[in-house]
C-alpha cells in the first residue's frame, strides 16, 4: 500500500464507473465488483467473529480451568515454594495494598498535572514539556520502568524489594494514562461552565475545584478505575521492585517495621500477576499450573469487576449530574 499523495476524493475512480455505466464491459465489471463486495463482506464478518471467539476462548479458558481451583483455603493460605497446596492469601492483599498506595500517590499528581494542562497552562514551554514527557512515559516498556524503579528506589535509595518501591514504580507506570484521560475528561466540560465561574469573581482554582471537577467527575472516576485495572494486572514493573516473595502476614502484628505486618511498606510484596509469572515460568511447584490458573481466574474476575464497576459507576454519576437535564453534556 502506498500513502496517497493527495487526500482521496470521492470521484478519484469516478470516470471508470461512470463511463462504464453503458456498454458490454459494464456488466462484467459490475458483476466482478459485486462479487468482490460479497467476498469482502463475508471476510470482514469472519474477522469480527474470530475476535469474539478469541475473547470468549481466552476468558472461557481461564475461568474454566481456574475457577475450580478457587477455594476458601486457596484464597487465604500462604503460597508454597516447593510443594503442592499453596494459596495466594498474601498476594491478594499485596495486590490490593499496592493498588491503593499507587492510586493514593498517582491520582493527586495526575489530577494536578492535568489541571495545569487544562486550566492554567497557556501554550508555553512547560505545557509542551509536560505533553512530551507524558508521551515518552506512556511509550516506555513497563520492564524499563521496572528497571528504573529498581535502580532508583531499590538500590540507590536502599529501600530494597518493598511495597513502597513497587508503588512508586507503578505510579510512574500509571501517571501518563491518568493525565491523558483526566485531561480529556476536564476538557470535555463546556468552557461556558468555566466562564460562568470566572465571571462570578472566582479564581481559576475555585472554578476548577467546585465547577469543572464535579462536572467532569464521571469521566475522572471512569479513568481512575480503568487505570486501576491496568495497575492491578501489571507484573513486569514489579518483579524487580516489589519483589517476588510474599512473606506470611500476621494480622495481629501492627508493628510497622516488622516483616509480617501487613501495612509495613518496607517489606517485599509479590502480587497476583507476579505470582502467575513466577509460578509458571519457574515450574518448581508441582501444582504450578493449577495455582497459576486459579490466580489468573481471580485476576480476570477482579478486572472484569473493575470494568463493570467503571461502566455502571460512570453511567450512574453522569445520570445524577444531568438528571432530566436539557443541557446534558452528551446532548
Amino acid at each position: 500500500m502506498t500513502a496517497p499523495s493527495t487526500p482521496p476524493t470521492p470521484d478519484a475512480e469516478g470516470d471508470e464507473v461512470v463511463s462504464a455505466a453503458e456498454g458490454v464491459v459494464t456488466t462484467a465489471l459490475t458483476a466482478r465488483a459485486r462479487r468482490s463486495n460479497t467476498i469482502a463482506t463475508v471476510i470482514l464478518c469472519v474477522i469480527a467473529s474470530i475476535i469474539c471467539v478469541i475473547l470468549i476462548g481466552l476468558i472461557g479458558y481461564i475461568l474454566y480451568n481456574g475457577v475450580g481451583h478457587l477455594s476458601w483455603s486457596f484464597l487465604t493460605s500462604i503460597p508454597q515454594s516447593f510443594k503442592a497446596g499453596g494459596g495466594i492469601g498474601p498476594e491478594i492483599f499485596n495486590s490490593l495494598y499496592l493498588l491503593v498506595l499507587t492510586l493514593l500517590i498517582s491520582v493527586p499528581i495526575g489530577l494536578g498535572a492535568s489541571i495545569y494542562l487544562c486550566e492554567y497552562a497557556p501554550d508555553n514551554r512547560m505545557t509542551a514539556g509536560i505533553r512530551t514527557a507524558i508521551e515518552v512515559l506512556s511509550s516506555l516498556p513497563s520492564i524499563v520502568v521496572g528497571l528504573f524503579g529498581m535502580l532508583l528506589f531499590v538500590i540507590q535509595l536502599g529501600w530494597g524489594f518493598s511495597v513502597i518501591s513497587g508503588a512508586l514504580t507503578l505510579t510512574v507506570f500509571n501517571l501518563p494514562i491518568l493525565v491523558r484521560v483526566i485531561e480529556q475528561a476536564l476538557a470535555s466540560v463546556p468552557s461556558t461552565q468555566r466562564e460562568a465561574g470566572l465571571a462570578l469573581g472566582l479564581t481559576h482554582w475555585e472554578t476548577m475545584l467546585h465547577v469543572t471537577i464535579p462536572a467532569a467527575l464521571p469521566g475522572i472516576v471512569t479513568s481512575v478505575i480503568l487505570s486501576a485495572g491496568r495497575v492491578f494486572g501489571e507484573a513486569a514493573a514489579l518483579i524487580y521492585t516489589a519483589g517476588q516473595s510474599a512473606p506470611a502476614l500476621d494480622w495481629s502484628n501492627w508493628n510497622l517495621l516488622s516483616l509480617s505486618c501487613p501495612l509495613n511498606v518496607m517489606r517485599p510484596a509479590e502480587t497476583l500477576a507476579v505470582h502467575i509469572w513466577k509460578i509458571s515460568s519457574e515450574g518448581i511447584v508441582p501444582d504450578g499450573h493449577a495455582v497459576a490458573n486459579g490466580t489468573a481466574a481471580l485476576l480476570i474476575i477482579v478486572i472484569l469487576a473493575f470494568n463493570l464497576l467503571m461502566r455502571s459507576l460512570g453511567a450512574h454519576l453522569s445520570k445524577r449530574l444531568t438528571a432530566g437535564g436539557t443541557t446534558g453534556r452528551e446532548g
Partner: peptide
C-alpha cells in the same frame, strides 16, 4: 469485546500461550 481484551493483563496472555 475489544475493550475487555485491552484490560487482560499480559501475564495472563503469557500463561495462555504457555498452556
Amino acid at each position: 469485546v475489544i475493550e475487555l481484551l485491552v484490560g487482560i493483563p499480559s501475564v495472563v496472555y503469557g500463561l495462555i500461550g504457555l498452556l
